[in-house]
Simulated scan of single mutants.
Amino acid sequence: MENDLSLATEAAVTAGKLLRKHFGKSLVVDEAMHHDIKLALDKESQELITGILLGARPTDALYGEEGIAGNQDSGRQWIVDPIDGTVNFFYGIPHFCISIALRVDDEVVLGVIHDPMVGETWTIEKGGVPLLNGEPVSVSSREKLEESILFVGCGKSTEALNTGIERFHKASLRARKMRMMGSAALGMAYICCGRLDAYVESTISLWDIAAGKLLVEAAGGKVTLTRREGEADSWSIVATNGKIPIEEIL
């Protein structure tokens, strides 16, 4: 039987091929909001991933941005973001990914983040070494904010936007460079391999960061999640290389 990490990688890479096929083409918009877009392709990608994962593990549960599937009483739950960076994808910006994690008895035990445009795949199993295209990676060694590149997310609500913009301004006075990149999962993958030094956002969903959290922590970084009260599966996140004094800009 194919092991769980290989299965998740297969699902992510297969979905990536679907996204590449449609990138830059005319797309069906299911819902257009002020600060977000939902595509028919989001659902198609999740259905493809669901078919692969639950086809091989029919007793498992699946929890994704586009809904749930499988046996919701199972202690094994796949957490899926079928396109993290949908707005980038829609506008023809090649910075998006597929994120898949497996949670067993409330503990995330593996993660895969796949960037189909660059051809990069990050993988991690709990207790193991994070890999980028099969090669070990680790967080950066930078310790000073003045040498760091920080990614600040702004979310979608007015509150989250205001918080993100305030943090961006405050951090920009200290950091070497600031980024707003549009994909939480890729931001965390970039911290994992030392390209970025921190990612901060006041409102994010579990499917955006489940795989990335395990990757960053296994690579030597630190991730703090705080549940937002009164909001279903909504979190604030601070992810760093574990060395820079991020609290100085929060």
Rank of each mutant, 00 (worst) to 15 (best):
D4M: 12
T14V: 14
K17P: 04
S26C: 02
E31L: 13
E31A: 13
A32I: 06
H35Y: 11
H35G: 05
K38T: 14
L39T: 01
A40Y: 13
A40V: 07
L41R: 11
L41H: 04
D42G: 04
E47I: 14
G51W: 08
G51D: 13
L53A: 07
L53Q: 05
G55W: 04
P58L: 00
T59N: 14
D60N: 04
A61L: 07
G67E: 10
I68C: 11
I68G: 06
A69F: 01
A69P: 06
R76F: 09
Q77T: 08
V80A: 11
I83W: 09
F96A: 03
I98Q: 11
A101M: 06
A101R: 00
R103A: 15
G111V: 01
V112H: 12
M117A: 09
V118W: 03
V118S: 05
E120W: 02
T121H: 03
I124G: 11
K126V: 05
L132P: 04
P136Q: 10
V139E: 03
E143R: 15
E143F: 05
L145N: 13
L145S: 07
E146T: 07
I149W: 03
I149V: 14
V152H: 10
G155Q: 02
K156H: 14
S157C: 07
T158H: 02
T163I: 15
F168E: 01
K170V: 05
K170A: 13
K170D: 09
S172A: 11
L173H: 08
R176E: 01
K177F: 15
A185W: 10
L186Q: 08
G187N: 07
C192S: 14
G194E: 00
V200P: 09
I204D: 10
S205L: 02
A210V: 02
A211H: 00
K213P: 00
L215I: 12
V216Q: 00
E217T: 08
E217P: 14
G221M: 07
K222C: 12
V223R: 01
T224G: 06
T224A: 13
T224C: 09
A232I: 15
S234P: 12
V238F: 00
V238W: 03
G242D: 04
K243G: 12
P245F: 03
P245W: 06
